[in-house]
């Protein structure tokens, strides 16, 4: 199997795992799914590192393993332990969401197709997937009503841009990746803290109930 094929295969796996994250109702399970997805992401980083001879990506895959496969899911599960496991409500039925998702994936590939001049030419599918992942994360935030589910959406978006970063800018200085990753982790931590406060004040994580501020 050629390197490109491996990367593209793993990239398709990313889409599947992200659908699992979005559609898993029990949040604890969704956290595991997210961990799984991040593992796939790490594998992509590794294979890119091997096949494209991109040494910096070894370090990336290591940091991603620590932070995304272990740290973030652990943080979410810790919050879940405090407030009890939840079931996320959705604004749409699963079938509708899947329909949207298919549309977004198609859109992403169309966009990725227009990138002509870059290294991504070899891994066009992976590029398309990275954009799709970003948009799926957005879809998750827009259609799910549960605050924690929205955090998952943010994490998906983050994974998407991380993959794009790896494809387009793997040779960037390390400080950049560290800076961006740190911000992402802190964003998740702060969102979790606020979600905890929301649960304490409102007794629910359903964002439809947060309606004190209007207009």
């Amino acid at each position: 199997m050629s390197g490109t094929a491996v990367v593209n295969f793993l990239a398709v796996l990313l889409i599947l795992t992200s659908m699992l994250v979005i559609e898993t109702r029990r949040l604890r399970l969704a956290a595991y799914m997210y961990s799984l997805q991040s593992l796939v992401l790490v594998l992509i980083f590794l294979s890119l590192a091997i096949f494209m001879h991109a040494e910096p990506l070894y370090i990336w895959s290591f940091t991603a393993l620590i932070t995304k496969v272990f740290l973030v899911p652990w943080l979410i599960i810790r919050t879940l332990k405090k407030i009890g496991d939840q079931e996320g409500e959705s604004a749409f039925k699963t079938s509708t969401t899947v329909l949207f998702a298919v549309f977004l994936v198609a859109l992403s590939f169309a966009v990725a197709n227009s990138f002509q001049t870059y290294a991504v030419v070899k891994v066009k599918i992976a590029m398309g997937v990275s954009i799709a992942l970003f948009l799926l994360g957005l879809l998750c935030i827009l259609t799910k009503k549960n605050a924690l589910k929205q955090i998952f959406g943010y994490c998906l978006m983050e994974n998407g841009s991380h993959l794009t970063l790896a494809l387009l800018a793997y040779n960037a200085p390390e400080t950049v990746e560290i800076g961006i990753l740190t911000d992402a982790i802190f964003a998740v931590v702060i969102m979790l803290v606020i979600a905890g406060r929301l649960f304490k004040s409102f007794g629910t994580l359903d964002t439809d109930n947060y309606t004190l501020l209007k207009g």
């Binding site: 605050a147 964003a187 702060i190 969102m191 606020i194 979600a195 406060r197 929301l198 004040s201 409102f202 964002t207 947060y210 004190l212 501020l213």
Partner: peptide, 8 residues
Amino acid sequence: AEAAWKYV
């Protein structure tokens, strides 16, 4: 709390 949530 609500405002901070929306904000972040």
